[in-house]
Write a protein that binds this DNA or RNA. Structure first.
Lengths: 197, 197
DNA sequence: TTGACATCCAACTAGTTGGTTGGTGTAGCG
DNA sequence: CGCTACACCAACCAACTAGTTGGATGTCAA
């Protein structure tokens, strides 16, 4: 240990607390005091480690997305499995869904966060593996498949309206999403096969 | 007209300004001063008319959703057309998408807004018209179709990552979503036909 | 015109918020 | 052992926020 008590532990505690707080309240709604308290750390440490509330948010979402991409690969040869796995991941990590939404709401039209460019390349490579000739249509399909997995987790209140009590059965929703994807891809990717539009 | 200068006009201006403000910054990020200024009205009027910032938000989103449901019916006999029309509507009204997202983020697990129950009934009726025997599976399909239309508008930054420059072509995305829906429903609704899951 | 009433607003306030600062305690090092 | 460097924190602050108030203004009824 150098001349510090527990730098990395403090940082990690801050990140974990911030993830909860940001997921719950968003950037504007999050309170730095609350984050510090939850982490059992002084507020000033946030600024020492991250600089500002918004930079802390960037760190949080970057970490969360990295956690996801480390565990879920983009659709390779089995797009339906991709939808199923991704749905399950989002169901298991609702905070990530909320973080993604808040990020989408915040960075409108602006550039991506640094480090997302690396993700872009990884995506491109993976999308390529799904089809021999990776077309724009293939990428769009991947995008929609992701939506199939994400959407139920994003809009629970709409699910409630449309499904009523059945909205609670998230596993059924996941299976339905996978079945929907399977049906759509039955005769090949839209835009590629003879059925394409 | 009673002894008022322009009650309805003030109220409408407030609602319009609030819609922009809330769409842009969310409930926590929105500033009541900014709303009042944008409406060309005094801040106090917000409290006179609506009571609080959050109630104003409720009024805004209720109005926005009513605008939508007045123009777009749930899928009747033509689900693909539903996806196409809904996609177009969201593209034309990006503020509504953002409002829906912020609402989803705010009311987590809580009850729906008053007035949404009426919408529930309307939904149930419409869903029924899509299938002779409205099942839970049908409702889930309607939900996913809505997601197909909404998702591209919700996650432009993800589209950017997956599609690159092509993300800008929203009309192509809409067509692709409709084609995807058509492919999925080609042999009947998932959960109903022989292909069901 | 006058009274009654509702709309409207400038100025104010009480409470929070993100961010800072001055100082303490500990670990390495000569 | 004293010195330096860094992690750490209680207390603080300037700026800003949602919400309020007291009075000016305009409209209707008589």
């Amino acid at each position: 240990m150098p001349a510090k008590v527990s730098t990395t532990a403090t940082r990690a505690a801050l990140l974990a607390a911030a993830r909860e707080e940001f997921a719950a309240y968003g950037v504007a709604g999050a309170r730095v005091d609350r984050i510090a308290e939850r982490a059992g750390v002084n507020k000033e440490r946030i600024y020492g480690h991250f600089g500002s509330k918004e930079k802390l948010f960037d760190a949080v979402i970057t970490e969360a997305i990295d956690d996801l991409t480390a565990q879920i690969a983009l659709p390779g040869s089995d797009p339906v499995d991709y939808v199923a796995k991704l749905s399950a991941y989002y169901q298991a990590h609702p905070e990530l869904v909320r973080l993604l939404m808040w990020e989408a709401l915040n960075y409108r039209g602006q550039e991506l966060l640094p480090g997302q460019e690396a993700r872009v390349e990884r995506c491109a490579r993976k999308t390529a593996s799904m089809s021999e000739r990776p077309t724009e249509a293939t990428a769009r399909t991947v995008f929609l498949l992701t939506g199939l997995a994400l959407f139920p987790a994003m809009m629970p209140q709409l699910a409630r309206i449309l499904l009523g009590e059945a909205a609670g059965d998230q596993e059924a929703m996941r299976e339905h999403a996978a079945a929907f994807a399977a049906a759509a891809l039955r005769d090949g990717l839209p835009g590629e096969g003879p059925s394409g539009g």
